[in-house]
């Protein structure tokens, strides 16, 4: 019963939190750029407006792919808060992303195509590090279950600092921040326009945005998991991570996909694998 309540709470509260985070992101970004910035609730206004727009689907199947994307993002988040297997959560999120990519491939638009290709590259870039995170957590807690990891009495960060930093590194791409906002950027000032999202409009685009809110909440939950033993420390870490990502976004230019792939793998190999090797020997 408690699990069901948690899941319901997640489904209701996560988009609110995610939307507020997006608003805060835009506000903080604006301040860093000496601008006034939009109101804090602007992302909600945007999504509400998108839902009111005329629905133009370039390809019929697009709708179902986007729906699947949203459902699987929610599912992965729900599995996470329900304390299920961490690997299952990670692969559910990957599957969700695959649906988004299929949605982008379902239309014949070169921008969408290139965006989808880059999204695949980005998946390749961050996936190793995310899996290493799960393995690292397993090696410390001897369990893949999120519930067990969260209940672990020690602070995971103490044993997994390399993995934590590596995760922050790939999170930049996952949160669509410079320098790794290749496939899609929030600002659309990109050579491939909106990247994967180029051909989505109206309600579909709104659904993608909501899915991103869920996903961001889940990703920051993953960050929180490192500090699960001390709740407030976890909240602090999440806030700091979030600020750091916005800060990095405003401090770097977008890099190429080759660089993203290479640097993410190097980060995974050095920070992630290094941390795992140390764990084996101590």
């Amino acid at each position: 019963m408690k699990t069901v309540l948690t899941i319901v709470l997640f489904i209701v509260a996560a988009p609110l939190a995610g939307g507020l985070m997006a608003g805060l992101d835009r506000k903080a970004g604006a301040w860093m750029q000496s601008r006034v910035g939009p109101p804090l609730l602007q992302p909600f206004y945007d999504v509400a407006k998108l839902f009111s727009k005329q629905n133009i689907a370039v390809h019929k199947s697009q709708k179902y792919y986007v729906l699947c994307f949203l459902v699987f993002v929610i599912l992965s988040g729900a599995l996470f808060v329900a304390g299920q297997d961490l690997l299952l959560v990670i692969f559910a999120l990957t599957l969700a992303d695959v649906f988004l990519i299929l949605g982008a491939y379902s239309v014949r638009s070169p921008y969408s195509y290139v965006g989808a290709e880059r999204e695949l590259v980005q998946m390749m870039a961050y996936e190793p590090m995310v899996i290493i995170t799960a393995i690292g957590m397993y090696m410390v807690t001897k369990s893949f279950s999120v519930a067990d990891i969260a209940a672990f009495e020690q602070n995971l960060f103490v044993k997994l600092p390399g993995i934590f930093i590596g995760l922050l590194f790939v999170l930049t791409g996952k949160l669509r921040k410079s320098p790794f906002d290749l496939s899609m950027s929030h600002h659309a000032h990109q050579e491939i326009v909106g990247g994967v999202l180029t051909e989505f409009s109206g309600a579909e685009l709104a659904m993608v945005k909501i899915a991103y809110w869920y996903q961001n909440v889940f990703l920051l939950g993953l960050v929180c998991l490192f500090f699960a033993s001390a709740f407030w420390l976890g909240v602090g870490a999440v806030m700091l991570t979030f600020f750091l990502e916005v800060f990095i976004d405003n401090n770097s230019a977008r890099l190429t996909w080759q660089f993203t792939l290479a640097s993410s793998w190097i980060a995974a190999a050095v920070l992630g694998m290094g941390n795992l090797v140390v764990l084996i020997f101590i």
């Binding site: 970004g29 860093m32 750029q33 320098p179 000032h189």
Partner: peptide, 16 residues
Amino acid sequence: LANALGFESLFMHCWK
């Protein structure tokens, strides 16, 4: 140029 490179804060600063 900063904008084309996805470097928004630099873009705004130049224009400031």
